[in-house]
């Protein structure tokens, strides 16, 4: 067993027994790490202060490779992200990003993912409220792409043709779009050129000028993550985000199916609902 110190972000914690907690961090040097933090339910416990969700800092653990739970020695918080709690929508967005990384769950060094995760949490804490759904899409799709699941939205996954101005059908199993000729049997939402361009932008973390149907985009993201990242199990935080978005001005895209299709945005068609 060795003592390891690494930059880390606390993404989740559970109470364990009267005094201890189980923590799940994303670390720069070891990816997702589960940590048993004995005695830290007391605020005065050594190494126990500052252990708040989304806080980042320097984590020191007694580390043994292959073990499910490492032992906490100390956590020195560099920054808390309490700002994410001042707005329930920000909190929901940050939870989506956190759960996405945790569900991927790779226990290996991921400096790029770590930096992207930190940037995403900071961005969600600071972005103006009206731009929040759009920013969440950017950050989440950016992480999805970085985790190795970039969707193919430029060319048909079967014949390689560029659908151009035509609608294409998204195929979750194939991880991309199918042109009109190859779409038989595909049940994913229809995407026009604008929506495809927006998704390309999201994966490259480029903000679209204007996003008319953020909820439809979030549904597509949720379904994609369910299929590819979380093993068929929808992320809990997407459901929470959906309930928080209901009725908010930031995500008012309740139009009919036809209007959605002609507006060349992801439709409300099949798949799970966040």
């Amino acid at each position: 067993m060795s003592v390891v110190t690494t930059p880390a972000v606390l993404l989740r914690s559970f109470n364990y027994s009267e005094t201890s907690r189980i923590l799940r961090f994303y670390t720069r040097d070891h990816g997702v790490v589960g940590v048993m933090a004995k005695g830290t339910r007391s605020r005065s416990a050594r190494g126990g202060t500052g252990l708040e969700t989304f806080a980042s800092g320097s984590l020191t653990i007694h580390f043994r490779a292959g073990r499910d739970l490492q032992t906490l020695r100390d956590f020195a918080p560099a920054r808390d992200r309490r700002g994410l709690a001042t707005d329930v929508l920000r909190f929901a967005g940050a939870s989506v990003v956190a759960e996405l990384v945790l569900e991927h769950g790779v226990q290996e060094a991921g400096p790029e993912i770590f930096d992207r995760l930190e940037a995403a949490l900071d961005a969600l804490a600071e972005v103006p409220r009206p731009a929040l759904p759009c920013r969440l899409l950017q950050e989440a799709w950016g992480l999805v792409a970085l985790l190795g699941y970039r969707p193919e939205v430029e060319r048909c996954v079967q014949c390689g043709a560029d659908p151009g101005a035509d609608l294409a059908r998204f195929d979750f199993g194939a991880g991309g779009i199918r042109c009109g000729h190859c779409a038989a049997g595909a049940t994913g939402p229809r995407l026009g050129p604008v929506a495809r361009q927006q998704i390309r932008g999201f994966t490259a973390r480029i903000a679209p000028g204007h996003l008319e149907r953020p909820r439809a985009h979030l549904r597509l993201l949720s379904d994609f993550v369910t299929y590819h990242v979380s093993g068929g199990k929808p992320l809990q935080s997407f459901r929470f985000l959906g309930s928080m978005l209901r009725g908010t001005a930031e995500a008012s895209d309740e139009q009919g199916e036809d209007a959605a299709a002609t507006a060349e945005e992801p439709t409300d068609e099949p798949g799970g609902r966040p």
Binding site: V88, A98, L102, Q236, S237, R239, L241
Partner: peptide, 11 residues
């Protein structure tokens, strides 16, 4: 309390 990752929402 609200806990998105545990599926605890206002409902």
């Amino acid at each position: 309390r609200l806990s998105p990752l545990d599926g605890v929402g206002p409902e």
